[in-house]
Write a protein that binds this DNA or RNA. Structure first.
Lengths: 203, 203, 203, 203
DNA sequence: CATGAATGAGGATTCATTCAT
DNA sequence: AATGAATGAATCCTCATTCAT
């Protein structure tokens, strides 16, 4: 997707590589990392399993690259929202919205993030997972806290817990939301924000 | 832990068996089913991996037993709440409360349920997973719909989506909630219900 | 060889293990470590290659155990000679003699020692190789130096170089000496000592 | 390094080829042939492993070329010494001297020769190894036998065994001798010859 | 109830080699 | 003269499972 200079030097990106990453992402999101074999990925790509090692140094390296790309992009987007928005309420709305859009555009990465990140956070070579997660948490919690300070949000809720409640219900959407059905990222987002703002009780 | 001896049969339940199940549950909850080896479990139990087969017919059988016990108990509890409660709002509160208590008392089973159930739903021998899930969904959605009908809950929210939002944020709590810290199941439950009822916005 | 208590606890030794080690030693001595496959060893033992891992944690672990056993025994023998012998000349003779006897009784281990030890000395997990080698060198060089001090050996030779000359020609014997032929350890030893003592020139 | 262009043929010799051979020699001498991968060599040369096949037809071909060059040159030198020297004692001294000089000038080839030749002797395509070795042995043993016949060398030593003792201690020097340290080929050679001639015992 | 030895299938990975570009 | 992608076979190792003791 990202435009890459066509001179192949320094290896990190190539079209073939991206294809393989996409295939791996889909399988890993579906079956889980440890239940996905290198051969599964290679088969799907129409090559032999050993040939994958021409592109990646290990199965773990595939996962790392997948997650790093995803989390870096995501963090960038969140940081941009935080930087460009003044109203905490609007910021939170935009963060939620961005999350739903991400679920729609990169469902596999989201799935992997949800399923594997908690375990990976402690693994060598995956330090970036907890680092990025921490920075994302900061952005969201700042929005919540600022909203409480400004009087937009109720002061009685615990911001840390509330962040987690929101985060979990939003991202978990990726497990059942399939674009092309009754819902779109937009409709889900609108629905969720209404629910988030007003709660469940009738007045 | 709970002595389950309602049927007088000899083999299926024994203390050793329960210990082994608890060990397996912990490991599977932490690493995931496919990343947990029979040997991991045996090591933790202080026996050789082959010896596990004296107690269980297969690795899958362990998982099945774990999940079946958990889901059966959980469904029972939910059904009891549905049967004994008249007010939909109270019913939903009690369901949420029950979920948090379950997270507190059986964190491993909850973790496994979350991580593996979506994949297992389609696996042979795990039909009970989707069956039980469907019945649980019915109970919760009935509470939501009844609450909308009675005027307790806002009619504008989609009950199916709302159910998922609630379900996901509640169960996901199991990923970060560790008893013994700042929170108890009770405090979390209270917190969540307040958030659920009123939403985030200040009046 | 070494009598082992029959209670199998703490695993380190068993008859089967010893058999497998002997097989591995023979193959590794013949083909070299890296050219010997785990399957080669297993085939020779009449089991599947994976079954070897019931006994050893890795191919490297086999090599390490082989070398450690060998070098420990060897060092013990050398130390005993050094401790029990007063005359430096007799000590050196006995050391040489012991070396030839070791070549005769454990040709495979000697071969492995010669072929692999220089490379292994720097490898993790093989620190004992250089440690033992250093202590062996000390024993031999002490004999040489003491012999020079006592006037038994010519003072003009460099003890360090002389040690290496002796060591290399003695151990290299293992590459061509096959018991059962024209020579025995005893005859070789006698021959070598004569050559060592008097040199090549006629008076 | 040495420009070998005596035959006008185009392909077989080129500077690049020689560089690659030198790199391969160093690695093979250090790690052993089977533990040195084609990729190791290519990496060190700054090219891709496949590109090596532009220069050599196989990994074995590299080894063969390396050894053939070395052994041919060596045999030539030994033959020249044998042809040009009358006194057996002087011949042996010169042979020894030549060996030390060769160790100094071509340490990698010497290392490979020592480590791999015994195994290779039986391999197809490496018949020249045993052939050359046999001719070298003949030259040395002739010097020894002639020296015994002339009364220069002691008649009581077995020429075959003595040859091996000498050969092994001389060539093994290559394992520890690094030019630039305390010793040179000359000093080592002098030292060894003194030791060889007189033996270790004081008069 | 557990051990210890093994199986057989499959797992990730390596590696020499090929070939179109 | 080299790349980059791939092959095919082999490598080390893992793992669920079996079974005689």
């Amino acid at each position: 997707m990202v435009a890459v200079t066509k001179n192949g030097r320094s290896a990190p990106t190539s079209e073939r590589r991206d294809e393989l990453l996409a295939i791996a992402a889909r399988l890993i999101a579906t079956r889980g990392f440890s239940a996905t074999t290198v051969r599964d990925v290679a088969d799907e790509a129409g090559i032999l399993s050993g040939s994958l090692y021409h592109h990646f140094s290990s199965k773990e390296a595939i996962l790392a690259e997948l997650l790093k790309r995803f989390m870096t992009t995501l963090l960038d987007r969140f940081e941009k929202i935080a930087a460009e928005t003044d109203s905490p309420r609007e910021a939170l709305d935009l963060l939620v919205d961005q999350a739903f859009r991400t679920i729609e555009s990169e469902p596999d990465a989201v799935g992997i993030y949800q399923n594997e990140s908690s375990f990976l956070a402690t693994q060598q070579g995956f330090e970036f997972v907890s680092e990025h997660s921490a920075r994302i948490e900061q952005i969201w919690m700042t929005a919540i806290r600022d909203g409480q300070a400004s009087g937009d949000f109720r002061a009685s809720v615990d911001p840390a817990i509330t962040y987690r409640f929101i985060r979990d219900s939003v991202w978990a959407t990726g497990r059942w939301f399939r674009p092309g059905g009754r819902h779109t990222a937009e409709s889900l987002s609108a629905h969720y924000l209404d629910f988030l703002h007003q709660g469940l009780l009738a007045d």
